[in-house]
Design a protein around this nucleic acid. Structure first.
Lengths: 412, 412
DNA sequence: TCGATTTGTTCAGGAGTTGAACTTATCGTC
DNA sequence: GACGATAAGTTCAACTCCTGAACAAATCGA
């Protein structure tokens, strides 16, 4: 698909583009009640029926698409044969290492979750090698399971909280894990099952944003900032339907944008960073809730407790959340003034707290965003859930196949 | 040109792509001492000599490219015929309305400036219709001049300081002009000479950033933020070699990013905006220089006076500039943390003041940008000059022809 | 003067899409 | 139950465009 700007275009590139175009139509349509036919796709894309037929043949031959059994026909004329993504051919695997858990997730081509597992445990006490060995084993077991059912695994993507040189480069810095310059892909592929697969690495917040995009979250917007509140705060920036990773893959480090020039010192060496006002620890501190409870995605956590207290009307907690929201809103407003996105998604711990944080964010955004009077900025909670990052990791793998079926064909 | 993601690719699109690819090679090479031959272009692009020949024939036939007279030949073999952009075929016209001047600029295909004119005068006292009629007349006169020499004018782009719905939409808000919801294109095309041409509108700061990009400024970087200090402060964001305009065309409103949540009130309705710390008026005030002098691009201005005082070592002025630089650096560091660009360009009034503002900006950026230890962020003064916006406007017109010669061919 | 070398052109062949004609399959109606 | 209308899917000649090899053109060096 889409030939790089500085490379010559060939007629083969046309076919790659159109193959992806047709597959995208099938993917969009297979979620709806009426699966698209070849003729529908021809009408929707502008290609002729002849071309669509030829392309669909290729996709069916590759096992990515299947013809559905004919359904109740209404109109005159030869009945259409519906097309849909095959759910039993290709899977994608996502992994995640975070401060206090490991996670694995498997999705099929349609995006349906086939397998999900979270293992709680503080990873800060482990070496990178140990943590990555463990998560690689989780992945290997999941892959074996997929293969046992006859599915091919298209690849593995791991989500990490920190500066990551996507998609292969090392992890430069993960302050909250205490990692620095770790060759993540090298360590993961010590596990033999992973060694033969394309393994990529990406930032946790970026993948959470992708999960939101793929799920049609963000109210269907294709230009949004997804803010993930965790121990740290990261943002995934989606512009015109594509994740913007930045020059080195380090975009979205919103947690270290300044709220006050002379604010409290931050782990990063500077001071007044957003993390000090709206990070998980800052919120707990301001709310007067002890931070001892595990913050895992699994059991009841400190965040749940905060949400409970806020729901019960606890004034100190509500004030803490409003304060965090104001700081977050200040920074988010700055981001929107710079990027002109139409939507801001609150993810991570902000999602369950959105009822109290959201209004403060929205108020600050409305007040500070220059374009708001003409195009209001929507502030909404994530629709994906707390495991957005692993899910996005797994989805990004199958999305790679959907975006470029041609190279999957030649690879497989 | 690259076929849009949701449209079918045709074989014709291949030719459009390769036509642009070849033209880009000619454009790059015609600046160097040794103009490229067909064979050079084939080697550089990966296309065959046969294809390049065919494409070059088209470009020569369209008058965009010309064969050069043979030069001194050194090696054995048939001598190469050099190719270069024709400077006498197509021109682009840029216009600008700013707070205290109107400007027009004409460039040829090679980017060389053929005509430039600045008319001082406070535009705040004029209605949008009057100001636009005057600048349209300047443009019409320039266009007539071009046509008299047999050149075709590919279009007109106007630069405006404010929220602009590029490339055709209305100007929503220009706080420093006092304009609101102005149909700029409609008013401009009342001038008959402009009515027959493609007229587009864009943000002043965005076009200044484009001028920097086209001139190979920003140290050759293709991912940078160009900050234009004027009465207001705007930024043009270039990501991966392309201007990022945002969802509505309102990106880069860096002047209204907050420095302090509770800072002084701003024209925009919020408070603590960067403009209140590093805008032209704030700098003059802090430096103790009266703001009465015109701030035009032409004669000696208040900014020149500040630069003179700073050069002479005036402590109050130097402190004012360092203070403005620190505030600017704080906000720019936030932008870099979000966008992960490798370069920051100081333009507008910051360019002549860069000697004193730059270090303060760089210090703040180094301290606050999370990725700085691995990939230092370069902070540099603009290499284009104070009329970057009009120049970028004119260049953006001819760049449109260079980027998509095929549609120029069919149009002309 | 002749071979070596490099540039540029010509031409058959292959990949890909198009558009029209054709086949297939179903519905309505007489 | 037969027949026409209707729509889906397939086949095939025509067109565009790139490739690769052969060829023609122009120059250098011996």
């Amino acid at each position: 698909m889409s030939t790089p700007r500085n490379e010559p275009a060939r007629t083969g590139g046309v076919r790659e583009h159109n193959l992806a175009l047709v597959l995208r139509q099938v993917a969009q349509g297979s979620r709806t009640a009426t699966p698209p036919s070849r003729a529908d796709i021809a009408a929707a894309t502008g290609l002729t029926r002849a071309t669509v037929s030829s392309l669909v043949d290729v996709l069916v031959g590759a096992g990515l698409v299947e013809e559905l059994a004919p359904v109740a026909r209404t109109r005159a004329g030869r009945p259409a044969t519906g097309l849909a993504l095959r759910a039993d051919a290709v899977s994608g695997v996502g992994l995640e290492v975070n401060v206090d858990y490991l996670a694995v997730c498997v999705v099929d081509l349609t995006g349906a979750v086939r397998h999900r597992r979270v293992v709680d445990g503080d990873q800060r006490t482990r070496t990178p090698a140990t943590a990555l060995r463990r998560v690689a084993r989780l992945g290997a077991r999941a892959i074996a399971g997929e293969r046992a059912t006859g599915r091919a695994v298209a690849g593995v993507t791991i989500a990490l909280p920190g500066l990551v040189q996507a998609p292969h480069g090392p992890l430069r810095l993960a302050p909250n894990l205490g990692w620095r310059d770790v060759d993540v892909v090298g360590l993961l592929t010590r596990e033999p099952t992973l060694a033969g697969l394309p393994v990529t690495i990406d930032n946790e917040a970026d993948l959470a944003a992708l999960a939101e995009l793929y799920a049609g979250g963000a109210g269907g917007s294709t230009s949004f900032v997804h803010v993930s509140g965790e121990v740290g705060i990261g943002a995934g920036i989606v512009l015109d339907g594509r994740l913007y990773r930045g020059r080195h893959g380090w975009s979205g480090e919103i947690g270290h944008v300044a709220v006050r020039p002379d604010g409290p010192a931050c782990r990063c060496g500077a001071g007044g960073c957003l993390e000090q006002y709206a990070g998980q620890e800052a919120i707990l501190r301001a709310a007067g809730v002890p931070a001892d409870a595990a913050t895992s995605m699994g059991g009841s956590s400190a965040v749940d407790r905060i949400a409970g207290l806020a729901r019960a009307g606890h004034p100190e907690v509500r004030a803490a959340l409003a304060g965090a929201g104001a700081a977050l809103g200040l920074v988010v407003a700055g981001a929107v003034n710079l990027l002109d996105v139409d939507t801001v998604v609150l993810g991570g711990i902000y999602a369950p707290l959105a009822e109290w944080i959201g209004p403060a964010v929205a108020a600050e955004v409305d007040r500070r965003v220059l374009g708001a009077p003409w195009a209001p900025v929507e502030v909404r909670a994530s629709s994906v859930g707390p495991d957005a990052a692993v899910l996005g990791a797994a989805r990004s793998v199958v999305q790679g196949v959907l975006d470029d079926p041609a190279s999957w064909l030649t690879a497989a």
